[in-house]
């Protein structure tokens, strides 16, 4: 049994999300290699080689892979996949875009977003927005899996010294081309990587009031998130959305401010270690998952909290 972990990276560095897949691969057992597909991505490959317990790192370095276009990257992964029993990647938007395409090229049924490893061919995964957990068994020779990052604690990023080898040929399909991107710039940590997340809901009233959360977040070194209701109301951009249709987070501390706690929001944060809810409606469903609930007007409570820390 051998697992190929597909590295998540931006060419210049490896994204720590990769380490959650390495942890899932370790839970499975067997040999683990990492594949880095990118352009001028040697630095990311060198980081991958530092990960403890990796057999080897393979690098497919070509201009065609610069922006992780699925049409180019998927055949590259499929080319390498034949030698492995499992192909894994953490379920980021990049992996969700590419891995099903890899699976179909290999004529196998992918398994998305696994939250547990039962055995070599059996996995747990959330369905219906996390309201149920399914146990599924694959009969395919190669298992193509995406991994729910929050369900596996990251493997250590260093301690290893794997060899790095160049692999693969260029797949340039010309079926899509990269035009541009708008990356949200922020000095705060990334939502999915932060130890503390402070999120606001529709109760925040407008986008300006989110400044109160940003100020608080900067004191804690926290990331700021939002409920879908706050995003739909136009208070904040969609990349801040926490929930089934947004980002799945599991920080040490999650503070929900003015969030009622719709099922779809809970699905994105209920694996957080400690949950605090501040809401003026004492019947709000968010209190059913909160370790500490404060029934209060957020416009009174937030300045007090700001002053107290």
């Amino acid at each position: 049994m051998s697992t190929l972990v597909i590295a998540e990276h931006d060419n210049s560095s490896m994204n720590v999300a990769t380490l959650n897949s390495v942890a899932a691969a370790q839970a499975l057992g067997g040999d683990i290699d990492i594949l880095v597909v990118g352009a001028d991505c040697q630095a990311a490959a060198e980081q991958a080689a530092q990960v403890d317990g990796i057999g080897k790192v393979m690098v497919a370095d070509n201009a065609a892979y610069a922006h992780s276009l699925a049409e180019n990257v998927a055949p590259m992964i499929a080319e390498i996949a034949a030698g492995y029993s499992h192909i894994m990647a953490t379920a980021t938007t990049t992996a969700k875009n590419i891995m099903p395409r890899v699976a179909a090229l290999l004529d196998v049924q992918a398994i998305s977003d696994i939250s547990g490893v039962v055995s070599e061919d059996t996995f747990k995964r959330p369905i219906y927005a996390g309201n149920l957990i399914a146990t599924v068994q694959s009969s395919d020779a190669i298992k193509v899996l995406t991994v729910r990052g929050t369900a596996f604690d990251a493997a250590p990023a260093d301690g290893g010294s794997a060899s790095i080898e160049a692999v693969g040929s260029a797949h340039d399909s010309a079926k899509s081309s990269f035009i541009g991107e708008e990356v949200a710039e922020s000095d705060r940590p990334e939502l999915t990587a932060a130890d503390i997340v402070i999120s606001g809901g529709r109760g925040m009233g407008n986008g300006e009031n989110f400044d109160m959360l940003y100020n608080l977040a900067d004191k804690f070194g926290a990331a700021v998130g939002a409920s879908r209701a706050a995003v739909d109301a136009g208070f904040v951009p969609n990349d801040m959305q926490v929930g089934q249709t947004g980002k799945i987070v599991a920080p040490d501390l999650y503070v929900a401010v003015g969030i009622s706690g719709a099922i779809q929001h809970l699905a994105g944060m209920k694996d957080s270690k400690v949950i605090v809810a501040i809401n003026k409606d004492e019947e709000a469903p968010i209190f059913s998952v909160a370790d500490y609930g404060l029934v209060a007007d957020l416009f009174v409570a937030l300045p007090e909290l700001d002053a107290a820390v």
């Binding site: 922006h67 276009l69 980021t92 938007t93 990049t94 899509s176 081309s177 990269f178 035009i179 541009g180 991107e181 708008e182 990356v183 949200a184 999915t192 951009p237 969609n238 990349d239 980002k247």
Partner: peptide, 9 residues
């Protein structure tokens, strides 16, 4: 809609 923001193809 991608994790970091928006991408145009």
């Amino acid at each position: 809609e991608v994790d970091g923001g928006l991408q145009t193809l």
